[in-house]
Computed example of a mutant assay.
Amino acid sequence: MAATKQSLGAEERRERTLMFLTPIVSVLLALVVGAIIIACLGKNPLQGYAALLQGSLGDMGKLGKTLERACPLIFTSLAAVFAYKCGVFNLGGEGQFIMGACATATVVFGLGLNGPAALALGLVAGIVVGGVWGLLPGIMKVTRGLNEMITTIMLNYVALYLMEFVFKNLYSDKGLPKTIAIPTGARLPDVAGIHLGVVIAIVLGVAIWYVLFRTSFGFKIRATGMNQVAARVNGFPVRSLVLLSFVISGAAAGLGGSVELLGRAPFRLADGFGSGFGFDGVAIALIAQLNPLASIVVAILFGILSTGGTMMQSVIGVPTAIIDIIRGMIIIFAVAGMAWTQLPKIKAYIASLGSKGEGKKAEASA
């Protein structure tokens, strides 16, 4: 019995090691591919990557810009992580992000608020409306059995057109296709060169990690995600947990939209606001292997690539599309690596390596 437990523990450690190494190897491979492309363009890859790091981490100002660029990705990736942990696929992070920002703009402009009251009510509105927007596909899934991937994507387009109505009609700035700017008193304050939203995002990531892995509620969420039938047999309220996961996921994305609007220039809604954040968040969640803390790290990596890409372009003269290629390769390698490590033959091979190692240890001790 003790030997069996020991072997199971060793196998679990090997799986965790593989899960930890897969995204790291994926990033390294993507950087190698990027270096090959840069070299094919006749440029120096090392000089390009040095410029990328200098442009994103070279001083406190650049570091702050990188963190602010990563901030919305942290929110949308956390939204994806929480939903996936419950076994549902929330591809509507972008729509929930946009609706959170629209709710904030409506509260601030519609009520004519300014100061701390506008800031607090704006954030609360973003959380509530984001949660409601996330609840809609949850209700459709639980009551009608509709595929949440389809409904969440469709709701993204609805949110997009609602935002367009807000910035073109409700609160347009002198007829221009953008809202008036958020009043100075209603904006998120700066903390050490970054807006407070970055701190909120990191705190939220830690809180979600704690809830998922250190509370009974989180255990129920993860149990439901692993096997709904087994969770239901054990008395877990599966339908309620699924709905709650959609609400919390949507609320996290909605808060991200509020933070983006209140914390980052130009402090207004316009065409392209929130574009791509939802699907980037899903990719980050997958690369991070659905770990909230790892999602923060991967989001910051994406922020480094986005911020430093401009500097790399100006220093060695390569297009910023190289950054998009590297980012895409990270996603491809990470997803392929996770799928590869789950193949039965690969698992059996790793287990055989572990058993050989244990056999050699036993022979040495004898």
Results as ranks from 00 to 15, higher is better:
A231Q: 11
G134K: 08
L261H: 05
D271K: 15
V88C: 07
T4S: 12
F213L: 12
T179H: 00
R268K: 13
R14V: 04
K356Y: 12
C71N: 14
A223I: 01
G256L: 03
E260C: 07
L261V: 05
L119N: 12
N156L: 09
M312S: 09
F89E: 08
A83H: 07
G317E: 03
T4A: 13
F217V: 13
P266L: 13
A186F: 09
E164H: 06
A192I: 11
V297F: 07
G58P: 01
N90M: 08
Q47I: 10
V259S: 12
K43Y: 05
L73G: 00
G58K: 11
K345C: 07
A364V: 09
L244Y: 07
A336F: 05
K360R: 12
A270Q: 13
R214V: 06
K178L: 09
T152M: 11
S258G: 15
Y349W: 13
M329F: 15
V191K: 12
R327T: 13
A339E: 11
Y349M: 15
L121K: 04
K220P: 00
G134D: 06
A270M: 14
Q54I: 04
C40H: 07
V242R: 02
L53D: 02
M149F: 10
G309P: 04
Q289H: 14
V108I: 15
P292F: 07
K62I: 03
K360Q: 08
C71G: 01
A117K: 01
I323F: 09
L241Q: 07
Q54M: 10
S365K: 15
L188M: 15
Q47F: 05
M163S: 02
R13C: 02
V166N: 08
A80L: 06
A364E: 14
G205Q: 08
F89L: 15
S295H: 06
L53C: 08
T215Q: 07
V33Q: 01
A334C: 09
L261Y: 03
T106C: 06
V108P: 03
Y349E: 11
R264P: 00
A283K: 09
A223Y: 02
G328Y: 04
A101Y: 00
G92K: 03
A348E: 14
G130N: 02
G359H: 10
A334F: 02
A270L: 11
K85A: 10
L170P: 01
R69L: 09
G337P: 01
E148Q: 13
I202N: 10
L21F: 14
P116Q: 00
I332K: 06
L91A: 07
V128M: 04
S352Q: 15
V25L: 15
R222D: 06
N227H: 12
E68D: 05
Y84E: 11
A80I: 05
I248N: 03
S172L: 03
F213I: 02
A2E: 14
L111D: 05
N169Q: 12
I127H: 04
H195Q: 14
S216Y: 11
V233D: 04
F302W: 00
L170K: 01
S258Q: 06
I182H: 13
G55Y: 00
A192D: 05
L301H: 03
